[in-house]
């Protein structure tokens, strides 16, 4: 029997953009330290958080991600001089857009995580997953109906 998607139990799907030099290494560190992470997260590695076009984040939401995390190096630590300043600027636009569109502001996150902060990465993923479980599936998601 084919089981309809709508009948399945909803589990959050969280999309995380991680920069190659800091937050991806941070996620790696979390693994190496054997920290438990909720399985909701899907990581996409980019070379720099400045490469994250707002269109990628928006497309992630439209594709049905319940939350999108934008992560990068701490301000001042960017491998490409100041590209994460641009990320911060674009994130302000995304935040206003998502709020005005009628999605909960908690569906969008920006965190600076360095290569050694594995614990921080694990905490962040736990925090996001808990919040998303509370607010429920994204209204943009098509495979799950309330």
């Amino acid at each position: 029997m084919v089981k309809r998607l709508a009948e399945e139990k909803w589990e959050p799907k969280i999309l995380a953009f991680c920069c190659n030099w800091c937050s991806y290494a941070g996620a790696d560190a979390a693994g190496m330290e054997r920290r438990q992470l909720p399985p909701a997260i899907r990581v996409i590695r980019v070379m720099c958080s400045g490469r994250i076009d707002p269109a990628f984040v928006l497309m992630g939401l439209l594709e049905g991600a319940d939350a999108v995390l934008v992560t990068g190096c701490h301000i001042g630590d960017c491998h490409y001089v100041n590209a994460n300043n641009k990320t911060r600027n674009r994130y302000e636009f995304l935040k206003e857009f998502v709020d005005e569109l009628g999605l909960e502001p908690d569906r969008l996150w920006l965190r600076w995580i360095s290569a050694s902060e594995g614990a921080l990465f694990a905490d962040m993923v736990r925090e996001v997953t808990e919040k998303i479980k509370k607010i429920g599936p994204s209204p943009l998601r098509r495979d799950w109906k309330k």
Partner: peptide, 12 residues
Amino acid sequence: YAISMYNVLRIF
């Protein structure tokens, strides 16, 4: 998509 990429990006 519930809202097309065209509209989302133009508004953004």
